[in-house]
Simulated assay, not measured.
Amino acid sequence: MSAFHEIRFPFAIGLGASGGPERRTEIVTLVSGREERNSPWANSRRRWDAGPGIASLDDIHTLLAFFEARQGRLHGFRFRDPLDNRSCAPSVQPSPADQVLGTGDGGTAAFQLVKHYASGAQSWTRTIAKPVEGSVRAAIDGVETPVTTDHTTGLIIFDTPPAPGAVITAGFAFDCPVRFDTDRLDIALDTIGAGAVPHVPLVELI
C-alpha cells in the first residue's frame, strides 16, 4: 500500500532540478477558425527533472538509496522547489502578513495555509500542505499571534478562535508533496569517478 514519507528529497541534488507548473488546456478549432478553450484541471500540477542536480558518484549513491527507500513511484515524499518554496518573493524572508488565509468568525480556530498567485485582476490560490517546520508565522489583524502548525496538512490552529471579521494572515516556507514519475533509474558511468542520471522525473501529488 502506498504511503507518504515525511522526508525531503536530498537538497544538494534537488537544487539543480528544472521544471515548474503544468496545466491542461483543451482547444477546439471551429469551422470559422475561432477557438474554444477549456481546462479540465482546476489546479496546476508541477513536474521537475532532478537529473541536472547529479554532480558526482556520491550524489548517485544518495539518490539510489532515496529511490529504493521510496520503492520507485510507490511512496510520496517532500521536495523543495528551488524556485517557489516560500510565501513571499525569493529575495526576502517570510513575514506574518504575506498571505491572507481568511477571516475569523468567532468559532473557527483552524485555518489552511494557502499561497495566492495574482496578476492583474486574476489570481489562483494554491493549498499549501507541507510547511517547513519552524517557518510558520501567523497574525490576526496584523498582530503576530502564536499558532500550532500541523506540518503534514498545512493547518494552523489558534489557541482562541479569531473574532468575527478579523483578517488572518501567515508567512511560511514550504515543500511540495511529490513522487518519482518512474520506476526505473537509467544510470550511466561516463568517466572514472563520475556518473550521470539523464532523467529523474518528479511529479506533484494532488
Rank of each mutant, 00 (worst) to 15 (best):
E204Q: 15
I27F: 06
P52G: 10
V143G: 06
I157E: 14
S95T: 15
W48T: 07
G16I: 10
T108Q: 12
Y117M: 04
I192V: 12
T29E: 15
A166N: 12
R34F: 08
P21S: 11
H75Q: 08
A163L: 14
R8S: 14
P21A: 12
D84M: 05
V114W: 00
S32Y: 03
D159K: 07
Q99G: 04
D186S: 13
F9A: 03
E6L: 06
P90N: 07
F180Y: 13
I187C: 09
G107F: 08
T169L: 01
R137V: 12
R34D: 14
E144P: 05
T153K: 07
I206A: 13
P90D: 09
A110C: 05
P94C: 02
S44W: 10
I156G: 01
E144T: 10
P21M: 10
D159H: 06
L30Y: 02
F180V: 11
D190R: 14
L57R: 14
A118T: 11
D49R: 09
A110F: 00
V132F: 00
M1L: 06
I60A: 14
E144W: 04
L57A: 15
T125Q: 13
F66A: 02
W124T: 11
A163I: 14
E133L: 05
T127H: 08
R80I: 08
D190H: 14
E204L: 08
W41T: 02
S91D: 15
F9V: 07
G120M: 06
D105M: 02
M1E: 06
G53S: 09
T191E: 14
Q99E: 13
Q99P: 03
V136T: 06
I192K: 06
K115Q: 12
P131S: 06
G53M: 11
A69P: 00
I206N: 13
D175K: 01
D186V: 15
F11L: 10
E36C: 04
P177N: 05
A12L: 09
G142P: 08
A196Q: 14
G51L: 09
G107C: 00
K115F: 01
V197L: 10
A129W: 00
C176F: 01
G154F: 01
D98P: 04
S95Y: 01
P82M: 06
G193N: 05
D183W: 12
I157R: 15
F79K: 04
G134A: 04
A50H: 11
